[in-house]
């Protein structure tokens, strides 16, 4: 049986503002962003922080949305789902996202993230401009700028992990911190 008190305690102690696991649709993202915006307003968050959190949230949730397409529809619901969790502990916002990616794509993706992490603040800005000016957009509208933007806006290195799930898939998790 589900222990509702236990769930409530876990939400309280980890200061979870919102968490979700399942299929990521455009409608879901619209709702989640509206909920988070009103939560940030209710918390009377500084406009500067509110904007940063909202912006980073848009990028990482839309990353989940775009990555959904890489997984074939015949895959089971677990592989086709993604999760995210937004919380605030000690004046620091934490956004955790997780999604499954094909093992054959892990190396290329990992290398890109590691390259982003080597760049300084100024280098990130130059890199962003270069990609913006040259990148051809993929059909669905992802430019590949999302991760660079997250690194730029948070001023932190991308904290990510790939965990093997089976012979075909790995779970990619990203842990984003936005300090005040």
């Amino acid at each position: 049986m589900i222990d509702i008190y236990d769930i409530n305690d876990k939400i309280e102690s980890n200061n979870i503002m919102l968490s979700f696991k399942g299929d990521i649709s455009s409608e879901l993202l619209t709702s989640v962003l509206q909920i988070m915006e009103s939560k940030l307003d209710n918390m009377k968050e500084e406009p500067k922080i509110k904007k940063k959190v909202y912006n980073v949230l848009v990028e990482c949730l839309q990353n989940l949305y775009h990555h959904m397409d890489e997984i074939a529809t015949e895959q089971n619901d677990v592989i086709r789902s993604a999760f995210f969790m937004i919380g605030k502990i000690d004046n620091q916002y934490n956004i955790v996202t997780g999604n499954y990616i094909k093992k054959q794509n892990v190396e290329v993706f990992k290398k890109r993230l590691e390259e982003i992490n080597l760049l300084s603040k100024e280098e990130l800005r130059e890199y962003y401009k270069a990609v913006l000016n040259n990148a051809e957009m993929s059909i669905k509208g992802g430019v590949g700028l999302g991760m660079v933007d997250i690194a730029r806006k948070t001023g932190e290195k991308l904290d990510f992990k790939f965990s093997s799930v089976d012979n075909f898939f790995s779970l990619f998790t990203l842990n984003i911190k936005i300090a005040q």
Binding site: L132, N133, G142, V143, D149
Partner: peptide, 13 residues
């Protein structure tokens, strides 16, 4: 603009 995402950034360019 109040907010814009990276998908829009290329289109604005």
């Amino acid at each position: 603009l109040e907010y814009f995402n990276t998908s829009s950034s290329k289109c604005i360019l």
